[in-house]
Simulated scan of single mutants.
Amino acid sequence: METLGTALRRWRDRLSPLDVGLPGRAGRRAAGLRREELADLAGLSVDYVVRLEQGRATSPSAQVVASLTRALQLDRAERDHAYRLAGLLPPADGTVSHHVPAGVQRVLARLQEFPVGVFGADWTLLSWTPAWTALIGNPAGLEPGGRNLVRAVFTEGPDGLARWPVRHADAGLPAALVADLRTALVDHPRDRGLHDLVEELRRDSPEFSRLWDSGAVGRHVSSRKTIEHPEVGDVTCDCDVLTTPGSDVRLVVYSAAAGSPDAEKLEFLRVTGGQLAGAPSSPAPAAPPTS
């Protein structure tokens, strides 16, 4: 009889380290990912992954299963199978999916030099490159609810989700985000979390409430943003939002013209990890609940 543990081992063994952005070293004894590599990708402890695979942890939360299915690059049918093996109902139709398709994850693994964030239809940050962390700041320590861009923009200001101040040249961003949520509600009418997010923002943000009640529409366009990074100073980047056909996820990509001073700053941050001289490294990703 198949268990979640046996399925996790099978899926882990088939996944190439190259597909998740890890170097492929000659002489690796493991055919696929090691347990510690899967744990790091999923934001879990190695011990918990071992207990899952050995069947000693039998009641993972939906959040844990979602993290594992993303890290293992499962397709939708495999994702649903993982939920059932864990004794959970798969995400229902009509709700926002936080599943990142395997193809998008492979593209992300090959875009390591660029700051790239992957967002769901509700603008929750799902995945990001190390270069994103180096430029924007590490979102790993945030609770999942704190990784929502719309909530951050309307409650914290336009710097939302960035550790350093950001100057936006795109004044239409708030209206575009409101329009996105309106569309998401049409596409995912059964998503309670999405309804709660809209109600929360209408209550707590006068600007969101005004835009929502006015029926504001907008669309994302290429824009320029300047990040006030304490290590390298101002970094001005082009910011593009890319969508993937057949999926709700969108990629937010920062870039700078090759050979420009801003491109050199991005490369410096990528190589150094964006760490301030003498500063401690960013905290490790917080492990999701293991209940």
Score class of each variant (00 low, 15 high):
residue 2 E to L: 14
residue 4 L to G: 01
residue 5 G to T: 10
residue 7 A to E: 11
residue 9 R to D: 13
residue 12 R to I: 09
residue 13 D to Y: 04
residue 17 P to T: 09
residue 21 G to T: 09
residue 21 G to L: 08
residue 27 G to C: 06
residue 28 R to T: 14
residue 28 R to N: 14
residue 29 R to I: 15
residue 29 R to T: 12
residue 31 A to K: 12
residue 31 A to R: 14
residue 31 A to F: 09
residue 33 L to F: 07
residue 37 E to C: 03
residue 46 V to D: 06
residue 48 Y to F: 09
residue 51 R to Y: 03
residue 52 L to P: 01
residue 53 E to T: 00
residue 54 Q to M: 04
residue 54 Q to V: 06
residue 55 G to I: 08
residue 57 A to D: 01
residue 58 T to A: 01
residue 58 T to W: 03
residue 60 P to F: 00
residue 62 A to T: 08
residue 62 A to D: 05
residue 64 V to D: 00
residue 68 L to P: 02
residue 70 R to D: 08
residue 71 A to Y: 05
residue 71 A to D: 07
residue 72 L to R: 03
residue 74 L to T: 13
residue 75 D to G: 11
residue 84 R to K: 13
residue 86 A to M: 03
residue 95 T to Q: 07
residue 95 T to P: 06
residue 98 H to K: 10
residue 99 H to A: 09
residue 110 R to L: 12
residue 115 P to H: 07
residue 118 V to P: 01
residue 118 V to W: 00
residue 121 A to E: 14
residue 122 D to E: 06
residue 129 T to Q: 00
residue 129 T to K: 04
residue 132 W to G: 04
residue 134 A to C: 00
residue 134 A to Q: 01
residue 137 G to A: 09
residue 137 G to C: 10
residue 137 G to K: 05
residue 140 A to H: 10
residue 142 L to P: 02
residue 143 E to C: 09
residue 145 G to V: 14
residue 145 G to T: 09
residue 155 T to Q: 05
residue 156 E to L: 10
residue 158 P to Q: 01
residue 158 P to R: 00
residue 159 D to V: 01
residue 162 A to G: 06
residue 168 H to Q: 00
residue 168 H to L: 00
residue 170 D to Q: 01
residue 171 A to M: 07
residue 173 L to S: 00
residue 174 P to Y: 01
residue 175 A to N: 07
residue 178 V to T: 06
residue 179 A to F: 01
residue 182 R to A: 13
residue 184 A to L: 08
residue 188 H to M: 08
residue 189 P to F: 12
residue 198 V to N: 02
residue 200 E to R: 07
residue 202 R to H: 12
residue 204 D to I: 14
residue 207 E to A: 12
residue 207 E to W: 03
residue 209 S to T: 13
residue 215 G to L: 11
residue 215 G to W: 06
residue 224 R to I: 01
residue 228 E to N: 06
residue 229 H to T: 07
residue 229 H to Y: 04
residue 238 D to A: 15
residue 244 T to P: 07
residue 244 T to I: 13
residue 246 G to C: 05
residue 256 A to E: 12
residue 262 D to L: 05
residue 263 A to G: 03
residue 266 L to S: 02
residue 266 L to K: 01
residue 266 L to T: 03
residue 266 L to C: 02
residue 267 E to A: 15
residue 272 T to F: 04
residue 274 G to D: 00
residue 279 A to E: 08
residue 284 A to P: 13
residue 285 P to A: 14
residue 286 A to P: 13
residue 290 T to C: 15
residue 290 T to I: 14
